[in-house]
Structure formats: C-alpha cells, structure tokens
Simulated scan of single mutants.
Amino acid sequence: MKIIYQSEYGVAVLSPADCGLTVLEIGQKDVPAGLPFWLVNEAVLPLDIPQEAWELDEAALGEPSGIGGTYREVAGND
C-alpha cells in the first residue's frame, strides 16, 4: 500500500515502513498538514511514465483516505 498526495512539486508517493503505525496513521503523520491523501495499491501507479508527469485524478480516486497533520498519538495504558 502506498500513500499519494498532491504536493507543490507534483504527485508525492510515500512508502510506509513497518513502524507500529497503520498506513492511515502514517499518512496522517507524514503528509503535510491540511493536504488530502489517498491509500492506493502500488499496482495502480503508472510506473511506466516519469513521476513528474503524473496527475492525480481526484474524481477517480474518490474521497481522500485522510488529511495530513491530523495524527494524534494515543497515550499508553501504563
């Protein structure tokens, strides 16, 4: 699963690491604040064209999976 969003430089793709957070939580934490992002299967990315030429079709992607900057760490039950 990849996280994609539209940055000021074009389409950005994040490859989440196994860090104990869900992919959604990583997007909420690592996508710049206020930007919508989508969780997509890597197989749907157009890897046969340069990433600089990619454009997000938000209508085709549907509702965003989340918004950057909205991650809130939950305190443990110590």
Rank of each mutant, 00 (worst) to 15 (best):
D30F: 03
Y71F: 15
P36C: 15
L35P: 02
E63W: 05
G34Q: 08
Q6C: 11
Q6D: 10
E52A: 08
E42D: 15
I4F: 10
G34D: 04
D30N: 07
L61V: 15
G34R: 04
G20S: 14
T70Y: 04
I3Q: 04
P64D: 12
V23R: 01
D48H: 00
V13S: 11
C19G: 10
I26T: 13
P50L: 02
G27D: 00
F37C: 12
P64F: 14
K29N: 09
R72D: 04
G10E: 10
L21G: 01
V11P: 04
Q6R: 14
D78F: 10
V44H: 03
G68V: 09
T70N: 03
L47H: 04
S15Y: 15
L35R: 01
E55G: 00
V40D: 04
L14Q: 03
E52S: 00
G66Q: 05
W38M: 13
Y5M: 02
D57T: 00
C19H: 09
D78R: 08
E63G: 06
Q51V: 12
L39I: 15
D18C: 08
L21H: 07
V44G: 00
S65A: 15
A43D: 12
I67Y: 01
E52H: 07
E58L: 12
V74K: 06
E58F: 09
G10A: 14
D57I: 05
N41Y: 01
P64I: 07
P64T: 00
R72W: 03
E8A: 13
G20Q: 15
D57K: 05
V74P: 01
L47I: 10
L45R: 01
K2E: 14
K2F: 01
P32C: 12
D48I: 10
L56Q: 00
I3D: 04
N77G: 07
V74T: 14
E63T: 14
G62H: 09
Y5G: 06
K29Y: 05
L47E: 05
V31N: 03
A59D: 03
L61K: 04
P36W: 11
S65M: 03
S65Q: 11
P16K: 02
A59C: 13
G20A: 14
D48S: 13
E52L: 09
P16Y: 06
P32T: 09
N77Q: 14
A75P: 13
E55I: 03
G68K: 04
L21K: 07
R72S: 12
Y9R: 13
A60C: 06
G76T: 11
A43E: 11
V74D: 08
I4P: 09
C19I: 10
C19A: 12
L35C: 11
L45T: 02
A53Y: 11
Q28I: 07
N41A: 09
E55N: 07
Q28G: 07
S65H: 08
N41P: 00
